[in-house]
Amino acid sequence: MEQLILASGACDPANDIICKPDNVIELFKFEDNLFAIGPWGITRTVFLILLAMVIVLTLLFFGLRKRRMVPSKFGVTIESLMQFVRDDIAVGIIGPEGTKYYPWLLSLFMFILVGNLFEVTPLINFPITSRMAIAGGLSLLTWVIFVFVGFKKNGFRYVGALVWPTTVPIALRPLVGLIEFVSTFLLRPLTLAVRLFANMVAGHLMLTLLLVSGWVFMSSVGEIGARALIGVPWFAFGLGIFVFEIIVAILQAYIFTLLSAVYVESSIHIEH
């Protein structure tokens, strides 16, 4: 019971109508080491990150291991996932040269997808992408790549076209240029990271609060009597959100990958 109240803090079912933790950080921080490899302590989050990596590698390996003419159902799923990323995201957004960025986009998609789906995986129930380290790290990588590509393809015209856009009236150019500069170099990586992070944090909070609070109320029926029934709608609502979060997990992985592709595309073709 004490462990269950991990999420709900010092919850008093007799007075509170929803159990909320004193500090949401407790839901996301796992400071204690599960085990240690040499000098590196492995916390639960780090363990889950490595687990996500292993799952992605396993999925790809078993999906593509046998080069069969007629693939199995699982093989078809992996293959169509890969072709979806290639045709719809890499080539669809960037164009023919998108195949160069395809491995990067595919690894992004798979890693984020598995990380997101951890949120609704039984026994794990914790999206690693709700840690700013993952969301921010990946978006930082995207930022590095699209800035690098911009300079490599267009040289200093890349920044020049951003801060001095020739398609707008000359009086507006400094203003538009400033907005463009800030939006490209600051807001893009920030929003990319925060979008994923915020969706996952919100989903995890909703799920934990609703399910745990529902469970706390229903299980303390002996102490508070008929008022424990309030736990039933909480729990049912939590289950509804659970299904919704599956969709959010897939959609957010898709959007992160899509936007990474769009940013790279806008660095290659600076005219528009």
Partner: peptide, 18 residues
Amino acid sequence: TTMFLGIAFTEALALIGF
């Protein structure tokens, strides 16, 4: 695809608020 892009750009303000 374009819709998702539009949503993504529009969402930026809400995310900054977050």
